[in-house]
Design a protein around this nucleic acid. Structure first.
Length: 187
DNA sequence: CAGTGGATGCTCT
DNA sequence: GAGCATCCACTGT
């Protein structure tokens, strides 16, 4: 299954299947360990009330990036899923840093590996993703996607930071990872 | 370690 | 004018 085929399917299948892929931007990045699925029929999704100038990308082609500003200062990156017009996307919430640790440390202004990519705002800062990448094809340079080298076990849980549809278990975290955004407690 | 609140800008009501 | 798909510093134990 190629990445393009994967994200063309249901967002509820694509989201857990993205865990374990490695995402690089200009050779810098890491393994995806935490994501959340957002569907159009989903009160917590930006696409819930239909397309707007901000969310137009969500209703475009799968495999492209929907980037939005969060709380006025952070960028958050999503991979558009399903076919055109569906308004479905997967929010990238955490990576296990594997490539370009030094570059990410500089961009983040800290050395602690655990804090480089463990959060949606953190990983965009570490990878240099901004609104300039909004609408870009994530399967083309400067992006690079490497498939998992071994089967990945994924556990569903509730999504974080939302106030509606809180009960839907559409957050997917790699089992046993210590790199997720809620792994602040020691292992 | 847990809990709180400030920063900061854009979208939609 | 409210409300965020957040992060960090600071407080009090």
């Amino acid at each position: 299954m190629t990445f393009a085929e994967l994200v063309a399917g249901s967002v509820h299948d694509a989201a857990p299947a993205l865990v374990g892929w490695t995402l690089l931007v200009d050779g810098v990045g890491g393994r995806i360990v935490e994501v959340e699925a957002y569907a159009q029929d989903d009160e917590a999704s930006h696409s819930f009330r239909g397309p707007t100038p901000r969310t137009a990308v969500m209703f475009g082609d799968p495999g492209h990036l929907y980037v939005y500003r969060s709380y006025g200062l952070h960028w958050c990156a999503n991979v558009v899923c399903e076919e055109r017009g569906r308004g479905a996307a997967v929010l990238l919430r955490a990576l296990e840093p594997t490539h370009g640790l030094d570059v990410m440390s500089t961009r983040r202004g800290l050395d602690e590996p655990r804090l480089l990519c463990s959060g949606p705002g953190r990983l965009t800062q570490a990878l240099g993703i901004t609104s300039e990448h909004g609408g870009a094809d994530i399967t083309a340079p400067p992006f690079e996607l490497l498939p998992p080298v071994a089967p990945v076990e994924v556990e569903p849980s509730s999504r974080i930071g939302i106030s509606r549809a809180v009960d839907r278990p559409w957050r997917y975290v790699e089992a046993g990872t210590s790199w997720s955004s809620r792994a602040r407690r020691a292992a």
